[in-house]
Each structure stands twice: as structure tokens, then as C-alpha cells.
Amino acid sequence: MIDNPVQWMDPARIDGLARALEETAAERQVIVFTHDERLPEAVRRLGIEANVVSVTRRANSVVELRESSDPVHGYIKDAWTLISTDELSDDVRRRVVPGFCRSAIEAACMEVVRRRRLERGEAHTEVEVLLAVPGTLTRIAALALFDDPGRGGDVMARLNQWGHWAGDVFKRCNKGAHDAHPGDLHKLADDAGSLCKKLSQLK
């Protein structure tokens, strides 16, 4: 059992840690507690077999465990869960589902950028600094699509090359995070999932 191994670790060594844990797990059960996504991210990127469980604590110390997949998949799944939760009012659903779809698109863009730059040999810290710069969804999309954060103006045209549904869902998720989405939520979540898939295929 290992508690918070990544906290002070040089990001470049996290891949090495993931591999070391993989080796150990061949003979023993390995349980790691961490709040840092870098280790699960490395585990996924390196194709290491692992169960990831997320733990949230609510009011009155009620603890919730959920099986966790990659963040993109997680946000889309959450969006669908919210769509099918009858206990929520329609207005609340319309106000929160787009935000989850937006986070999925954001996470998908970040994954593309991270994978591309790490494969190119850039340092982990530099990639993280680049991704940590606060910015708009358009900026992170420009980084994913063009490897250039300054090309925000070209994002919509590039997305529309995949079909107008792509540019449309991007715009609606961006807007919808601030307002109740007036249209079909099923279509929004569906198209957001499709856009994330397209983004994940970018080299």
C-alpha cells in the first residue's frame, strides 16, 4: 500500500514509478492512494492494467466510491448519468450537462497535447506548464488541432471539416456551461462524445 507517492516527485519520473509499480504488481497486489491524476494518466498512457477508483466525501462524511476511467470518458458518462437522473429537474439538467460535455472536450484536447508533446520528447514539466496556463476552450482546442495556442480563429473552420455537428457542439458546450441549454441534451452528449473521439485520433 502506497500513500501519495507522486506529491513531490519530478514529473519526468512518474512514468518510471508507474513501470515499477507494474513490475511489483506481477507478484503482489499494489494499492496506491493519490489525489494526483498524473499517476493514473501515466498508467493509461503506458497501457498498464489497473483499476482506478475515485473517492469523494460529501456532507456528513458520506463517502462515495466510483470506478474511474480516463477523464474524457468519465465526463461523458457523468453527462449521460445526469440526463437519465429523473430526480433532477429539467432546468437543472439543462444547466449542468453542457458543463460536463465541455469538460470532456477540454480533457480530450489536453490529452492530445500531452501525448503529442511527450512523444516528441518534451519535458513533462514544460508540457504541464503549457497546459496549466488559464485560457479559453478555444485556446486549448487550438493547441490540440494546430499545436499552436494562437490559432483560436481557425478552430471553428477546422472543426467544421468533420461536419457542422462538430463546430455546433463545441459552440453549444462552451455557451451551455453558463446557461440552460435549450436544445436536445441527448444529441449534445452524443455529439460531444463523437467530438472527443475525433480529437483523440489527432496525431
Binding site: 469523494t56 456532507a59 458520506v62 462515495e64 445526469l82 430526480e87 437543472v92 449542468v96 453558463h178
Partner: peptide, 28 residues
């Protein structure tokens, strides 16, 4: 008021999604 309900009651239908949902509603 919606956010207060989300935070106060452990409704299994919102397990794990309530922090982000609460933040989205509060910001709106």
C-alpha cells in the same frame, strides 16, 4: 437553493458528480 440541496443530501443519483454540478449552478 438547488446547490444547497446537492451539497446537503447524499442522493445516490448524484454520487461523484455533485461537486462539478454544484459549481456550475453556483456560477450561473
Amino acid at each position: 437553493d438547488q446547490v444547497r440541496i446537492l451539497l446537503r443530501f447524499s442522493d445516490p443519483s448524484t454520487a461523484g458528480v455533485w461537486p462539478r454540478a454544484a459549481a456550475l449552478l453556483a456560477r450561473q
